[in-house]
Design a protein around this nucleic acid. Structure first.
Lengths: 261, 261
DNA sequence: CGTAACGTTGAATCGGCTCAATAGATGTGG
DNA sequence: CCACATCTATTGAGCCGATTCAACGTTACG
């Protein structure tokens, strides 16, 4: 592991090393970032949103901003869980693998999402970048100290984790009881509510069909066929494979809820 | 709703009204309980385990112990979420329903489990008793006050919620990627690690085959067939339908992990 | 008993999977 | 710029695991 470059501590302009993790051979160059948290796009909807400017600044002192290129691994199942992350840009996939290679993606962490907040010693899931992704990284002890000292942060964490649990429970319903087209419709609508909107009712699909399939408990072929069917039915507009226009959100919503064919 | 009977406040012997909720017509009679928390079987593994005797006692002042008969409803989707519960005995099912009646059970809350901890205003899931069940009930404001005053409780809650999120993620893998027999094997092993053990390697199945099916994303018929197959293969011993002896835990574990036929 | 609810078993069907071929997109080097 | 390789997405044909539909067995209870 390369050691971090020296880090001058000016109030408003700090050198924050940005490193590439995982499978990549050469680390990316350090980058000068002024007021890293103040300029952070995801700050308004991440956990940090609950912090006052002063506390945010003290957070900025310990944070290590990191970057992953597409397909690089952030951590793998079984590794010791040393760090805690917030996603600031890009997208990740969080998944579990069965011994024979079957994969279940349990979520696509997006900017503002927190990673690895559970109390477990080692990772139970693996995580890799879907696209180029930047994150804020804390050691678990730094993180624990912040939680102890900043009660509003702990409160926000409780609420956030509760929300994620709810999301997981909804996804269990998708996986256990919905048909292929209901699953795909649910997925598209989920993205529409996730800041991944390009323009009105147009969502970006940074993940491959295989990723979508592994998230929805289907195969690539079924996902592809379902997209084609939706297009034929006038529910979506699909020119590039990673750009979907939802032309009939009402019908998609009904489908996702199980109210249609 | 019947009003609660008067409640003398002796230190060691308190009248705690026990009421039946939900669909039942007539409420059960109040019951005198001495030292309700000290005698509570689930105390050692529920959230309360983190509290000192003194704080536990102050908790006992505000708690309302309640009872549900089998199949009674604790709450339904859409209802205002007024209360927070810990299960002290029995078992519940927590589920979501699609408009056409398809059901997904997302968990079977057992003694020690917490219910309704999320920050949401109204219930997103429904919950009903599998067997006769007793719970401790707090209003959300009492609960919030305890969390603010007893930091160890909030910490325990963070950890507990994180654990549940993990469990939900594992269940997503079951629902999205496992075969019928892998699902049933996973379920049996999950129960084995859940204090539902009757004697060595014998688990109690208080829920119906339909409940199991709705938890595993299968049909009753498939669950039943899989049990029969397991019996033929010498993996389980099934004389009464609600009592399963796991005669070959190693093989079941391999099956559950996806390492066998 | 009779009835109702739950569990088991069988036969036929079907939704989504597997296998296979083609099409499109992206990148590389000559 | 094209030729070629690689990777992803799409489409088709046949198959299979789980469902559906149906019958029967079992248990609980008045």
């Amino acid at each position: 592991m390369p050691s971090a470059p020296p880090q001058p501590k000016n109030a408003n302009s700090t050198v924050i090393p940005i490193r590439a993790f995982g499978t990549s051979a050469e680390p990316a160059a350090p980058l000068v970032v002024s007021d890293p948290c103040g300029n952070c796009h995801s700050r308004t909807y991440s956990l940090c949103a609950c912090l006052s400017p002063g506390r945010l600044e003290s957070l900025a002192q310990t944070v290590m901003r990191t970057r992953l290129r597409a397909h690089e691994t952030l951590f793998e199942r079984g590794e010791k869980a040393e760090f805690v992350y917030t996603v600031t840009s890009g997208a990740l996939k969080l998944y579990s693998l069965l011994p024979d290679g079957r994969r279940q993606i349990v979520g696509f962490p997006y900017p503002g999402d927190f990673l690895n907040v559970g109390p477990q010693e080692s990772h139970l899931l693996s995580c890799e970048a879907v696209t180029e992704t930047t994150l804020c990284r804390f050691t678990r002890s730094e993180y624990a100290a912040f939680l102890e000292n900043y009660r509003e942060l702990k409160q926000a964490l409780v609420e956030r984790t509760g929300d994620e649990l709810q999301l997981a429970q909804m996804q269990m319903t998708v996986l256990g009881r919905k048909t292929a087209s209901e699953r795909v419709a649910s997925f598209l609508l989920q993205l529409l509510n996730k800041r991944s909107q390009l323009s009105a009712n147009v969502v970006h699909l940074p993940m491959t069909r295989t990723d979508i399939a592994d998230y929805l408990g289907l195969t690539t072929e079924t996902v592809s066929r379902t997209f084609s069917q939706f297009r034929r039915d006038g529910l979506i507009n699909l020119t590039i494979s990673e750009r979907v226009g939802l032309t009939n959100v009402a019908a998609l919503s009904q489908l996702a809820a199980g109210l249609r064919s």
